[in-house]
Design a binder for these strands. Structure first.
Lengths: 261, 261
DNA sequence: GCAGTTGTTCGGTATTATCGAACTATAGTT
DNA sequence: AACTATAGTTCGATAATACCGAACAACTGC
């Protein structure tokens, strides 16, 4: 009778909903799409189970089938909902005009980011004027400890919170410049707190430098950050100083916008 | 035994998944969020049912709870997935650079759209340089028969398809200039086919004019369109002609990109 | 035409979603 | 502060429903 009683006791989840979510998750990793059997094998669900859930998701446009291959892919309804979410954030309205100004001043890529469950989540991006563009993308997650945006946000965590963060996420290295020890990170964050901005020096990607400054929400809590990214060879000396100054200024301006909103 | 056998016979849907989807749908209509009871009342589901589904969705970030109000809103995972969907479309990569060029030439708002189940769906938008911006938004749907983008796409439907479209969607009027009769629409579409572009003259919104041109995909099928929108008072005479010429040219250029991709 | 694969349908089984009601927490009122 | 009213959460019994395996159908490629 009790076949799998003690298997996964965790917190009650509606199974079929969870399965649907996991199907979407797995589809999000393959943008060429997946076939029914691929999904069913990967998730170890019987084909008929997957079939039923996919049919439901399809009818509501959460997934769609490629006409040629018949493969399932994420559907337009998710696109719609995702944009709805983006539009619901006041931060975007406040930040985008100022980000654009910053982009005009230096011609470089400008990012807006926030923490989402221990990850850096890119909320918005203004592309550089030149053709070589940073290959980041809105809606993408990145480890916090190696991006300028992430470090700025980490800098205001309490020691306990920081510890918890490191335990949960670790400090994986993306390049050989990535900070990978707790002590080094603590020192770096202390520095960031003092100077009021962060610099990422090839910690995500060799040759990429970025300057990030914190944004306070209406309650004065640092919850967002903006950054300018460019090749190291375009961002040094006096220009770097200018960029720092202007980035901090822009971030403060956005904070002020959020205050009286 | 058979309490509700003949209630909803339609096609088999996994109930709980469907309920989860409907919860997301209803949340997407209120961006200030909704409380558990509001949702449960609106959808006529018992509170405990909604509670369970929401808990599952919450744990996977498909919804999140406002810290102050406790209201449920769409979550960041949807933002992530939505952007994933957007990135999976090659059309965006091909179109965006050319759309930006078009935006630079005239300084006006440029849109990219496609049909999604009988609606115009905005896929991408480049904002105008000036402050007065069209209040359209990416990820939003609009009736096809009253936007330039939509009319361009309608123009290549067969009479039977057009008929089906009208039956399904009707021809609701958004302004007093909106085309609301089948015969008027047929005439308009014929004109569009001849000239190779469409003009929307205040049919969505009084005072707004927009010029749209079709984009062919790799198989030569018109599946997308771009448009320039501006106030009528900024878009007439020789400038209008220039805009038409350049919009068509840009659309053709994008079609060519898609060909050899 | 046949083997191999993938997608779809079907029906019995018991797992699991469901629902009402009881319970707790929270907010508002006097 | 106590009390009311509302919202949110937990619980447990019930049977409806998701689940699964297997059989069937539809393709594909050889």
């Amino acid at each position: 009778m009790e076949k799998k009683t003690n298997k996964t006791k965790q917190s009650s989840h509606i199974q079929s909903v969870e399965k649907a979510i996991l199907i979407l998750d797995i589809l999000s990793k393959k943008n060429e799409g997946m076939s029914l059997t691929q999904i069913s094998q990967k998730l170890k669900y019987p084909k008929s189970t997957v079939h039923g859930i996919l049919a439901t998701l399809r009818d509501y446009k959460f997934v769609e089938q490629s006409e040629e291959t018949g493969n399932y892919k994420l559907g337009t309804r998710l696109f719609e909902l995702g944009n709805k979410v983006a539009r619901s954030w006041d931060i975007r309205d406040a930040a985008i005009p100022i980000m654009k100004k910053l982009n005009k001043q230096f011609g470089e890529t400008v990012h807006l980011g926030a923490e989402d469950n221990g990850d850096m989540l890119y909320l918005e991006k203004i592309d550089a004027n030149h053709l070589i563009n940073i290959s980041s993308e809105v809606g993408v997650r990145l480890p916090m400890h190696c991006s300028g945006l992430g470090k700025v946000l980490l800098a205001q965590k309490s020691p306990a919170e920081l510890k918890r963060f490191i335990n949960q996420k670790g400090l994986p290295a993306l390049t050989r410049r990535t900070i990978t020890t707790q002590s080094a990170l603590e020192k770096e964050l202390e520095k960031i707190r003092k100077q009021g901005y962060a610099i990422d020096d090839g910690e995500i990607m060799e040759g990429l430098r970025c300057v990030a400054a914190p944004i306070k929400d209406a309650n004065g809590i640092i919850r967002y950050a903006i950054s300018i990214s460019a090749q190291v060879r375009d961002l040094y000396g006096t220009r770097l100083n200018q960029v720092i100054q202007e980035t901090v200024r822009a971030a403060n301006q956005i904070s002020k916008e959020l205050e009286n909103l």
